[in-house]
Amino acid sequence: MTMADGTIRAAGCVLWRRGPVDGQLEIALVHRPKYDDWSHPKGKLKRGEDALTGAQREVLEETGMECEPGAVLPTAHYMAGVRPKEVRYWAAEATEGSFEPNREVDRLLWLPPTAARARLTQDRDRPLVDALLRALPADVGGDATYV
């Protein structure tokens, strides 16, 4: 969706889970073949869609995962070509589902925070990992020890 001033509105989540083997914090990153990049699941809002609903929809479409949204994370502002883009983010715990490659996203990785920060293609996405760690309770792995 586009705002009256031409800003592209989008939303997404920093999706996390406890690892199935060791219970440690893992962050989901998606690979988009169109851009050949690794990012957090996100996408443009539909007309009249509120940002949180759009963020959850995008997570489901791109990862196959249902999620439970949590803390509001920093909003990203950047230029998408010649137009400004605003992406609102939430921390969200993956609750159920399974990934199937699709036209938009061909790969999904679950990585520890340090590896997720390193794998992200855009520098602007890295502070979202840090914001997630600050937002999560210590018993889940939240704090700055990974940074």
Rank of each mutant, 00 (worst) to 15 (best):
R83L: 13
D106C: 02
C67Q: 00
C67P: 01
S39T: 14
L132G: 04
R32N: 03
P127K: 14
T63M: 02
V72I: 10
P127R: 14
R103N: 09
E26N: 03
L15G: 00
L136E: 09
L45M: 11
R134Q: 10
K34G: 13
L60I: 08
P137S: 11
E68L: 12
W90S: 07
H31G: 06
P137G: 12
R103M: 08
A135D: 02
G64V: 05
R18N: 15
L132E: 00
V140Q: 15
C13Y: 03
W110P: 13
G97F: 06
A55E: 07
P20V: 11
G70E: 12
K34F: 04
R126V: 12
P41Y: 01
R57H: 04
R18F: 01
G70C: 08
A138N: 08
Y89M: 08
I27K: 01
P74W: 06
G70Q: 08
V105H: 07
S39E: 12
L108M: 04
A116V: 03
C67A: 14
E100M: 00
W38H: 10
R124S: 02
V14A: 11
A55S: 07
E104Y: 11
E62A: 01
T114I: 08
W90D: 05
V129K: 01
R17A: 13
G23N: 12
A51M: 08
V140A: 11
V105T: 13
M65D: 04
K42G: 13
S39V: 13
E96K: 06
G81Q: 04
K44S: 15
K42S: 15
A118F: 07
G48Y: 11
S39C: 11
P41N: 06
R57D: 07
R134W: 07
W110F: 09
L133Q: 05
T63L: 00
Y89V: 02
D106R: 10
L15N: 00
L136S: 05
P84T: 01
F99D: 05
D123N: 13
V21T: 15
Y35M: 07
G70N: 10
A118Y: 10
C67V: 01
P33Q: 10
P84D: 05
D36F: 02
R134A: 15
L132C: 06
A116D: 09
L133C: 14
P20N: 11
L120C: 07
G70R: 14
D50S: 09
D106W: 05
Q122D: 05
L128F: 07
E93G: 02
A131G: 01
A118L: 13
R117N: 04
Q24T: 12
E104K: 10
L15A: 02
W38N: 09
T114A: 14
V82K: 15
G23V: 00
R83V: 00
T53F: 06
P33C: 09
L29I: 04
R124C: 04
A116S: 13
P69K: 06
W90V: 02
P41W: 01
T75S: 15
L29T: 05
D50Q: 09
P84A: 03
L29M: 09
P20E: 08
Q56I: 14
V21R: 11
G64E: 07
D36I: 10
H40V: 00
M79K: 08
D123H: 10
N102G: 15
T114Y: 07
G54M: 11
A76T: 12
H77D: 11
A28N: 00
A80C: 06
P127M: 14
P74D: 10
V105Q: 05
L73K: 10
D36G: 04
R88Y: 03
R83P: 05
A115K: 12
L60C: 05
